Amino acid sequence: MAENAIPVALLPRRRPTTMGAMRRVVFVVHEGFQLLDLAGPADVLATATLLAPPGDGYRIEVAAAGAGTVTANTGIGVEASVPLAGVTGDIDTLVVVGGLEVERHLGLAGQIGRLSTLARRTASVCSGALLLAEAGLLTGRRATTHWLSAGALAAYPGVTVDADRIYQRDGVVWTSAGVTAGIDLALALVADDHGARTARDVARGLVVYLHRPGGQSQFSPALRAPAPDEALRDLLAHIDAHPGADLSVPALARRVGLSERHFARVFTGRTGMSPGRYVERSRAEAARRLLETTDHPLDRIARDTGIGAPETLFRVFRRLWRIAPGEYRRRFATR
């Protein structure tokens, strides 16, 4: 946590927003931020304002370390109307955006922590969750972020990371997954404020899902923390390359020359998941690639990837990605 981060628990929370007043939304940006992290949610809120009762929409402000032009990752400049230190008064929603270089801006955590005490709720888009964690706002909470940042977020004490969630709400703090997931988050905020019908109308107008099927891992490689140990890296490569092999704990422990108990403890500590869970995800990833690139029937895919039966394949896909294998193939086949 940043040294200048304010102890959030020591500062008073603001009262909830009353109906009939424009809801003030402050977006926090920084140099190199992901433009869609700002533009996507802002468009959702702007569209909701057109549909909301008069005076009950959203008033959007952009703040940064200093007022003036802030350059996004695309090279496009966005005008920050006020420096973070100059933001005062009640805020309905504080939204912290992310970007590939977000860890260069952890020094903003102190001001973000201060602003969160002025806000009814605080949210992050993509890797912006790292700034919330640095400010101490995710301690003792469940959160999500872009799958590339999941390991960095999990390194913060007291943060429980669910890296497959599109967005996560834990009390007054909301977090979302990578980039376009900010749109899903904003739609959820609109539904929370104005009801599902308004959120559905906004989604229809923007031609996006109101509730997209599956989690973010259906769009990304396997979600796992890197393993620094060379022997363990070799073992992970073996698992990924041979999904149909015997990948039981006894077999894997023999391969690295450890007792089963010690192996399970080391594996879980280095990767953040148990051997069984890793093997299941690796096999599911292999099945997913076959669904994308081949016409193999489901029973062959289940057999070749070590999953076993089509029924098990269906259960694994529904549990991991909340989508059936056949539906996944229809959406993402590239052959």
Rank of each mutant, 00 (worst) to 15 (best):
M1P: 12
A2T: 09
N4E: 12
V8L: 10
L11P: 01
L11I: 03
P12L: 05
P12R: 04
R15T: 14
T17S: 13
T17P: 00
T17V: 09
T18L: 15
V25Q: 12
V28Q: 01
E31L: 02
G32R: 11
G32H: 08
L36E: 08
P41L: 10
D43P: 02
L45M: 13
A48H: 08
A48Q: 07
A48E: 07
T49E: 10
P53Y: 06
D56M: 06
R59C: 01
E61T: 02
V62P: 01
A63C: 04
A65E: 09
T69A: 03
V70M: 04
N73M: 08
S81N: 01
P83H: 01
P83M: 01
L84R: 00
V87H: 02
T88K: 10
D90K: 14
I91P: 05
I91N: 05
V95N: 01
L100N: 11
V102I: 15
V102E: 04
V102N: 02
R104H: 13
L108G: 00
A109S: 11
A109Y: 05
R114H: 11
R114C: 05
R114T: 07
L115R: 01
L118F: 03
V125L: 07
S127E: 08
S127G: 12
G128M: 01
A129W: 11
E134A: 15
A135I: 12
L137W: 10
R141T: 04
W147M: 07
L148A: 15
L148R: 14
A152G: 03
A154P: 09
A155Y: 08
A155E: 15
A155I: 06
Y156G: 05
Y156W: 12
V161G: 08
V161Q: 11
I166L: 13
Y167K: 00
R169Q: 15
G171F: 03
W174A: 08
W174Q: 05
T175L: 10
A177C: 06
G178H: 06
T180L: 06
G182M: 02
A188H: 08
V190R: 01
G195L: 10
A196W: 02
R197L: 11
R200G: 14
V202H: 02
L206P: 09
V207G: 01
Y209G: 09
G215I: 02
Q218H: 03
A225F: 06
P228W: 03
D229C: 01
R233G: 14
L236N: 00
A241N: 09
D246R: 13
L247M: 09
R254W: 02
R255A: 11
V266M: 13
M273A: 12
P275R: 06
E280V: 07
R283K: 13
R288V: 06
R289Y: 11
E292K: 13
E292D: 05
T294C: 06
D295A: 13
H296Y: 12
R300S: 11
R303V: 04
G308K: 09
G308Y: 07
G308P: 09
F314H: 15
W321V: 04
R322S: 15
R322P: 00
A324I: 02
A324C: 02
E327I: 04
Y328E: 04
T334M: 11
T334C: 09
R335Y: 13
